Simulated scan of single mutants.
Amino acid sequence: MTSNTNKPNRLFWIIGVIALIWNSMGIDGYINQVYQTKRFKTMYTEEQLEIIFNLPSYVTAAFAIAVFSSVIASILFLLRKKLAKTFFLIGLIAVSVQTFYNVFLNPGKEMYRTVEYSMLILIPLFALFLYWYTKKCADDGILN
């Protein structure tokens, strides 16, 4: 049995913890949206809620896959497992599906505010970064 002698640096742990927190917040958002909680409903107008609650099922499924696979990936990353790369890739693909819908197909996109546009940029970029960084860590022998 071989052991990994490449020790992660402080940045590795910081990125891992931020990834876990960020993606856990995604699960919170998903649960609030799917269960139509009071907290979620106070964030949007009735017109926006009508669109959100009638999203195509594949968009809601992509949301679930993105956040749950990314939390699993974050945990695997912190455990220094190469399998994290696969789960971050699954999350990245799901985020891409969701983003494509929100940018090109969503009938409510004319109601987007600065926050929505910011998230449409930030979420895919962070998902791409996490996949890239995890791939780099795997290639450098930090993940086993």
Rank of each mutant, 00 (worst) to 15 (best):
N9W: 04
F12T: 07
F12K: 06
I14N: 05
I14H: 04
I14Q: 05
I15Q: 09
G16R: 01
V17H: 03
V17K: 06
V17Q: 10
I18N: 08
L20Q: 07
I21D: 02
I21A: 14
S24I: 04
S24K: 03
S24T: 11
D28H: 04
G29T: 03
I31V: 11
N32W: 00
Q33W: 02
V34T: 11
F40Q: 14
F40V: 11
T42D: 08
T45V: 04
Q48N: 05
L49M: 09
E50G: 06
E50Y: 02
I51V: 10
I52V: 09
F53Y: 14
P56C: 13
P56K: 04
T60W: 00
T60I: 11
A61K: 04
A62K: 01
V67W: 02
V67A: 13
S69K: 06
F77E: 00
F77K: 00
K81I: 06
K81M: 06
K82D: 13
A84C: 13
A84F: 00
F88Q: 10
F88W: 03
I90H: 08
Q98G: 07
F100W: 05
L105Q: 11
L105T: 05
N106E: 09
P107W: 01
P107Y: 03
K109S: 10
E110C: 01
M111Y: 01
S118V: 11
L120R: 04
A127Q: 11
L130H: 04
W132T: 13
Y133P: 03
A138T: 07
D140T: 05
D140P: 08
L143N: 00
L143Y: 00
L143W: 00
N144M: 13
